[in-house]
Design a binder for these strands. Structure first.
Length: 196
DNA sequence: CCTGCGATATTCT
DNA sequence: GAATATCGCAGGC
C-alpha cells in the first residue's frame, strides 16, 4: 500500500528513521524495480549547514521547499544523481537522502542499468555486479532504479513513476544511528540511520 | 584488508 | 578557482 501525505509532513529526522524497512518503487521505461530502504540521512532547512537548503531556495534546491511527499533529485560530482524524499511543510526545505536499498524486484534490470552505464571514460569492465552491490549507495541506487532529473519534483503520493509503499518498519533494536557520510559541515549530528 | 586518486559538471566564493 | 550529500580502480599491506 502506497504511503500517503501525513507520513511525509513530519520532521525529516522522524521520517528518515521511519523510512527504514519501507519499499521504494519505480516504474521507468515500462520497467518496475523495487527495494527495501536500509540507509537514510536527514537534511534540515536553515539550521543545518550540510543541507542544500541551508541558504534558502535556489534553482537547484527548489523542490526541497515543496510540501513533504515530493521527490528531490540532484546532480552531484558531475556524474551521479541522488534521490531524496522531501518532508515537512511547504517552504521548510527538509529532505531525506535515500542512501541504500536492498533490491527485491527487477534485479536483472538493475544489473543491466548498473553494467551498461559507463561511469568512467573507459567502458565499464565486463563483470557481474553482486546483488548486494546493485544499490548500496546513493549514486548506485539512482542508476539501478532508473532515477534521473526527469523525476525531480515528482509527487510521491500520486506519481506514476516513483513512490513508497508501507513495507515492514524496523524495531529500534534493528536500527543504528550515526553521523552523516561525505559532508564537512554540521558533521556532529547523528542523522544517518542504517539497518544493522 | 586498507588508502589514495581521477572523472566530471554545477554551484559557490 | 575551490568545493561537492560519489564511485570504482589501482596499489600497498
Amino acid at each position: 500500500m502506497r504511503i500517503s501525505s501525513s507520513f511525509f509532513r513530519r520532521d525529516a529526522r522522524t521520517v528518515a528513521r521511519d523510512l527504514l524497512g519501507r519499499t521504494l518503487v519505480t516504474v521507468v521505461d515500462g520497467v518496475r524495480t523495487a527495494g527495501t530502504i536500509i540507509e537514510t540521512e536527514a537534511y534540515l532547512g536553515s539550521d543545518d549547514a550540510a543541507s542544500h537548503a541551508h541558504r534558502g531556495p535556489t534553482p537547484r534546491n527548489g523542490p526541497m521547499f515543496l510540501e513533504g511527499g515530493h521527490a528531490y533529485v540532484y546532480f552531484i560530482y558531475g556524474m551521479y544523481h541522488c534521490f531524496n524524499v522531501v518532508t515537512g511543510s511547504a517552504g521548510e526545505g527538509e529532505a531525506v537522502l535515500i542512501r541504500a536499498i536492498e533490491p527485491i524486484e527487477g534485479l536483472e534490470h538493475m544489473r543491466q542499468r548498473r553494467t551498461e552505464r559507463a561511469v568512467r571514460t573507459r567502458p565499464v569492465a565486463a563483470r557481474t555486479v553482486a546483488d548486494g552491490a546493485l544499490a548500496n549507495g546513493p549514486g548506485k541506487l539512482a542508476i539501478a532504479l532508473g532515477i534521473g532529473p526527469e523525476l525531480n519534483g515528482e509527487d510521491l503520493r500520486s506519481g506514476r513513476r516513483v513512490w513508497l509503499e508501507a513495507g515492514v518498519p524496523l524495531n529500534d533494536a534493528e536500527v543504528e544511528a550515526t553521523q552523516r557520510i561525505g559532508i564537512t559541515k554540521s558533521v556532529e549530528h547523528p542523522w544517518r540511520w542504517v539497518r544493522r
